[in-house]
Amino acid sequence: MKQVNIMGIPFACVQHKALIKLLDEHIMRNEKSFVITANPEIVMQAHDDSDYMSHLHRANYITADGIGIVRASQLLNNPLPERVTGFDLMIDLLEIANIKGYKIFLLGTYEDALTRVIENIRHNYPNIEIVGVHDGYFAMDDLSVSKKVKEADPDLTFVGLGVPKQERWISQNIDYFDKGIFLCVGGSLDVIAGDVKRAPVSWQKYNVEWLYRLLSQPKRWRRMTSLPRFVVQIIKKRLKRTS
């Protein structure tokens, strides 16, 4: 698959529907795959932390979760086709799992929220088998968590531990597993639980979902400072290429 390098990160040049089909094929062949959906915050964190960058490079697919990544690829004259977000991937994979009876594992958020996630998934996707859950409050070296996941033998593991823990955890444990899709989903579990609202479709349409999140969760402002830093770096690279 063609890749687009943005500040050292190889983004998969793939559309949402095509990736869903690929991941479903991996499941049917009992293969494993590590999927990251990266935004400018993740790019800048990897830019500042070489160890984190090495974990990202272990992924099979890194997609553009954010219009900033797509715009950057266009500025660098190597455009990505579209955004491919973690939440949208999770929802479509849940729909496929419901049709095919796939087994899933939920890793992340806190216990009360997980209870609501389970209830909502069972209500909306009754044919899915939830083979295990674990909250996100554990030490990175706690081997009992990866053991629990392996014993559950899921087809899909949704990892919502937040950045950078979720990428590090999958990277450090992926060799332990024999099969399954491991997808970083950030705060998507909290959205399914009903604790966090996703931006309205109109905000998504105009690519200002990030602004909606900032207005609804003002404490995110520190994380948002990575966006202007990212823009500056992309402009520098653009100017360097044109000169």
Rank of each mutant, 00 (worst) to 15 (best):
A72V: 07
I20D: 01
I42K: 10
D178R: 08
M44D: 03
I91L: 12
F177R: 12
E167N: 05
D88V: 05
I69Q: 02
I234Y: 01
A97Q: 09
P10M: 11
V70Y: 14
P79F: 01
S243T: 06
E167L: 01
A59M: 05
K219G: 07
L161W: 01
K165C: 05
K240I: 08
F230I: 01
H26Y: 13
I128N: 07
T109I: 08
G136D: 02
Y61C: 04
L22I: 13
V201D: 12
R168M: 15
W221C: 04
I91K: 06
D49H: 09
I9M: 09
H16E: 13
W210Q: 08
K165Q: 11
V145N: 04
L80N: 08
L156D: 01
S171M: 09
T109Y: 02
S216H: 15
L94D: 00
G66Y: 08
I130T: 07
S171R: 03
Y137F: 15
I27Y: 02
Y212C: 09
N120K: 14
R122G: 00
C184P: 00
S216F: 11
R58E: 13
L93W: 00
R241T: 14
A46H: 10
G8Q: 06
K240S: 11
G86T: 07
W221K: 03
K237I: 01
K2R: 11
I20K: 08
A64I: 01
P164C: 07
R71T: 09
F105Y: 15
M224S: 12
S33T: 15
A38N: 07
Y137C: 06
H16T: 12
R238F: 13
I9W: 05
D24E: 13
I234A: 03
L94W: 06
Y137N: 10
Y125E: 03
I9V: 14
L189E: 09
I91H: 02
H47S: 02
R223A: 02
I62C: 00
H55P: 01
K179W: 00
S146H: 03
R220W: 05
P228A: 08
V35K: 04
I130G: 02
L80Y: 06
G136L: 00
W203K: 12
H123Y: 14
E82T: 05
G108R: 05
K219A: 12
M1R: 07
P79K: 11
K148C: 06
K236T: 01
L56H: 09
G194I: 06
S73V: 07
I130A: 00
I42M: 15
V231K: 06
P200V: 14
I192F: 03
G101V: 08
A113C: 14
L107E: 12
D190Q: 10
G8N: 05
E31C: 12
W221T: 02
H134I: 00
V70F: 12
N173F: 09
S50V: 13
M53P: 00
D135N: 15
I181E: 04
D155K: 07
H26A: 11
Q233A: 15
W203A: 13
A152L: 08
V14H: 07
L183K: 04
N78L: 03
